[in-house]
Nucleic acid binder design. Structure first.
Lengths: 240, 240
DNA sequence: ATTCACACGTGATGC
DNA sequence: TGCATCACGTGTGAA
């Protein structure tokens, strides 16, 4: 807890304060008590203030504006704190001391994630079964003799019945041909590994588009509630 | 390239501008050309103004202040861009679409790094040899029958002659006893794995302090130039 | 004295 | 409308 940083120093604040808004501190909503959540950073429950009608009706437009401003200010502060707390966690996780730059820290994180991603993808046997974490991997691939770009795409997520139609639709819309497909499900999760051929004309863009499309596909999977997670038969299917 | 964001909207700017500083755009020093570093994503080309010496000598204090302000503004903008570009890279690396929150994105990153770190630390055989990436791992450990906390600490970094003395000094200052030590070097890099006992009184704090101390040790290793990287004999030493 | 990184409060924008 | 996020310009302290 650092001492309050005296926003009264601000010219604008002084300007407003001198115009008769004295008790700035008494207005405004209480900042929603933020409970520490493990990872997802977003627990904005209990924004339930019950205030009497008189409080509302007594608010002049100026008061409302000031209250909104204060609210906004505090919300922004909470947002910063949330982001910074995650950055601190990352500082703990990576080999760097506590006073490294935000930018350098993030650079290290990028590097580390790339490395780890590569390491795990190189591990034999781990790739065949679906993992517990969602994943989209699109490797750069090579050009075949006739100029087509051949590359590998992998998608690991919760299984759902309309996943394959969506996937097929995506591939069709991007004019991508599936040369080989490997599909493994285990415990309600699925891993798809596709070998794909892209037309020579827009091959690079297609790869990038595909990556984004797969990610949004995956987001859609996540937005559907977990409670619907039906138990499906584990199956392994290889088309080639 | 978005259209200029008209800082003239700002009240302060307007205030300054109305006091006779009309041609704000023509003043200002060129931002110091920032050299491109590999990872930091910053292409700050073409801020090349070449001004005659008269320009400098003609600077009134007001001009200098304005120039400094502009400089500062631009530097800050560059900093933001640097950070955000790293965040964008992380967005590409993780399974999330391009419009996910900064905070949520970072939460995912934390989760991912934790997972990957755990995965790789569980892999047999990979841990014995020093890796190419610097690493500090301090596992939580267990309490022995006499109340001491027994835990494992691992440190992987460039080898250097005064690493061991530093390490010993750290352990001594934290009142930690080394029960078992394993040291493997390969190609100028070293991996230390220590089994450590902490006094019952400040065991938890000691673990945390140790982690930070090891990290700063590692930072010191990095700050010494790589050119001094002497070729040392690979060795494997186990004390127990 | 200059540079650098950070936190802050604010306006804009989206839902 | 209110409540999110974001980019921005600024003040400030450390090297």
């Amino acid at each position: 807890m650092q001492p309050e940083n005296c926003p009264e120093n601000s010219q604008l604040y002084r300007f407003l304060a001198e115009n008769g808004m004295i008790n700035v501190g008494s207005y405004g909503f209480p900042a929603a008590m933020q409970t520490l959540c493990t990872s997802s950073s977003t627990s904005y429950h209990n924004s339930n203030y019950h205030f009497e009608s008189s409080v509302i009706t007594d608010m002049t437009p100026q008061d409302r504006a000031l209250a909104a401003l204060k609210n906004h200010k505090e919300a922004e502060k909470r947002r910063r704190e949330r982001i910074n707390s995650h950055l601190d966690k990352l500082r703990d996780l990576l080999p760097c001391n506590s006073k490294t730059d935000k930018a350098s820290l993030l650079a290290k994180v990028v590097q580390r994630v790339r490395e780890l991603k590569q390491q795990t993808s190189e591990l034999p046997g781990l790739e065949t079964f679906p993992s517990e974490t969602d994943e989209v991997t699109v490797l750069s691939g090579e050009y075949s003799s006739d100029g087509q770009l051949i590359f590998k795409a992998s998608l690991c997520c919760e299984d759902r019945s309309d996943l394959m139609p969506d996937l097929i639709e995506i591939l069709k819309s991007l004019h991508l041909k599936t040369l080989k497909a490997e599909m493994v499900t285990l415990g309600g999760r699925i891993r798809n590994v596709l070998i794909i051929a892209a037309d020579k004309d827009h091959s690079v863009e297609s790869v990038h588009f595909l990556q984004n499309a797969l990610k949004s596909l995956l987001e859609r999977s996540n937005s559907t509630e977990r409670s619907k997670r039906r138990r499906v038969l584990d199956r392994k299917l290889i088309i080639q």
